[in-house]
Write a protein that binds this DNA or RNA. Sequence first.
DNA 1: ATTGATTCCTACCAGATTGATAGGTAATCT
DNA 2: AGATTACCTATCAATCTGGTAGGAATCAAT
Lengths: 154, 154
Amino acid sequence: MRISARAEYAVRAATELAAASPESATRTTEAIAQAQEIPRKFLEGILLSLREAQLVTAQRGIGGGYRLLRPADQITVADVVRAVDGPLVFVRGERPSDLRYDGSAEPLLGVWVALRARVREVLEGVTLADLARGDLPGPIAAINEDPAVWANPE
Amino acid sequence: MRISARAEYAVRAATELAAASPESATRTTEAIAQAQEIPRKFLEGILLSLREAQLVTAQRGIGGGYRLLRPADQITVADVVRAVDGPLVFVRGERPSDLRYDGSAEPLLGVWVALRARVREVLEGVTLADLARGDLPGPIAAINEDPAVWANPE
DNA sequence: ATTGATTCCTACCAGATTGATAGGTAATCT
DNA sequence: AGATTACCTATCAATCTGGTAGGAATCAAT
């Protein structure tokens, strides 16, 4: 279960826009690329995806750039990841709820569905405003209070 | 965040072994492949990985096959997935706790760590015995009681 | 109307991963 | 000896991934 570079860059870029003040200000691809150390040409494609997903708008020409289309507290990390990478969780190329299991493997479906639910819980539980402010919401922060969560078991 | 065919096949194959009775009985690659409709040659490689991870043992020759090395209630889905696909969650090729963020993207680390924690919770919370018996443990089953969990939002 | 900044679009690329197959070797039992 | 089974190595096409190149369209300011 990997989070792609595309997705990670996208969240960082979007957070950069969320941190812009005032909210109506635009930031150029170049500015975002430098601030977040993202390859510029690669970032171009990412921002395009974010625009197609209606998370940002673009303005061409001098003084142009990107800005968020909705308030930062109404865009979640899940929105951004879905915009660039598609469905949050899929199993063998299909969404869990599209899978068909028969026979003894059937209870496995429940595992994938529960997995997706938990992934959603985290990624839909954090907004760009949270990230820009630098403070995770209580329920998410609570997860990380257990030190075991920071250890690598493998 | 995809669950690979390899991982999904591996869990099904392991469940097949968990369902064998008595527990000491062996099942051949061929038998597992047919029962679970997994390409045989592909399954061969998967079972090899499971053996290297010390989850199963193999016996060659007539009457040979594979069997679980530990009781089925002491092998979790996470164990199986790690055996064939490595770390459960990684971001841009690294484990969350190996990532370094500086500046405004720093709180993002907490998101990935929380994500991994929740993924672990589900995959470490279900054993092969649970799957073989066809009943998910209470905490996992509880997640799936909310109907929203079964819907595709995208 | 020209110029410079900027997004937008299409194409391309090398390398890794994924899902799978082929064919032979080694061990084990009857 | 012969059948059966796991084991190993190599190969493969297709796709994905991370990234680059170059120009066309658009916009604001002069």
